[in-house]
Amino acid sequence: MPSGLLVVAHKEFVDQLTSKRFLSIFALLLLISALGIYEGTADYNEHLASYSERLQSATGNDPYAGSLSEIISPLTIFSKMSDYIVLFGTILGIAMGFDLISREKENHSLKTLLARPVFRDEIINGKALGSILALVIALGTTVAVSIAILLLAGIVPSLSDFGAILIFTVVSGIFILVYFSLALMMSAISKDSGSALIATLIIFVILSSVVPILGWAAAETLAGPTPVSANPGSPSVDAGDMQSYQQDMQAYWAKRSAFSSAINLISPDLNYERMALAITDPGQAIATDNNPYSFAEGPPETSPGLDELIGAIWANALALFVLPCVFFGVAYAKFMRADIR
């Protein structure tokens, strides 16, 4: 006899894979991603042709030969895919989770199920496990189709690129899991599916849109007053004052950027976008940190090392991982203590 966990997980997996809701959102994600990748491969091939052309025209005494930028990685094609995952992945995660528990309460099947020799934690864990497996299938298929399109277009990723695509898939899965677990939590807390969906959407808007806006405003307040020049409006500028002003501004923006980044850690969308960028375009990810002084420097000419990359995004990775754990924890605690009458 399989354990209660596996029985529940199997049913949930089949339910998800056969649900019209799941299939339609999955089909949309697959279609949009495939189109995005197809478009990306065209851009990539165009860029590659232009690069070859410039390389052929460059001669040994050509003064511009050294300015040829590095050949772009096929991974950049996937950076576009992260935009679609932010949209459709969120919808998919919410659609899969918002009525997982509340629907059972509404149609009274939870009481019938709880009359079986099965622990409550096996029920909620089984539901989560079955849904996550369905999610893995959906995401895995989407990425597999994307790779197939790359190969059909004659773009063969290297082994390290395949590794990066795998990491990208895992990170994308965790991102969708954030919204799935949020929806599951609201499903366990709310009395009905309608309330669960509305509450989930409100929190989604707060996390994805309100937090970045408030984060920017709060960072401005927390960073204190903007440094001002020693002689504002004076036509003659003292070099020492100017240097001091520049240093103050740099310190101010570094502080403001740090505050903003810390607040933005609450937003799974921003964490995911930053991580996806770090995987698909590491140089760009290093240069992007809300600090205009960093923008001025532009992306590094060579790809950053793994340690530098980890140093830049570890907080985002941690935050992205912690959120679903918190949401699952609350859902679990609520379901275990729920009064079934």
């Binding site: 006899m1 029985v7 009274h108 099947s109 009481k111 019938t112 079986r116």
Partner: peptide
Amino acid sequence: PEDVGFYGNMTAEQNLDYYARFY
């Protein structure tokens, strides 16, 4: 239960089979 409920997307046989798997 007084207000017995089932999975509406499944047949009677499928519902019973799901419950039977716990034994």
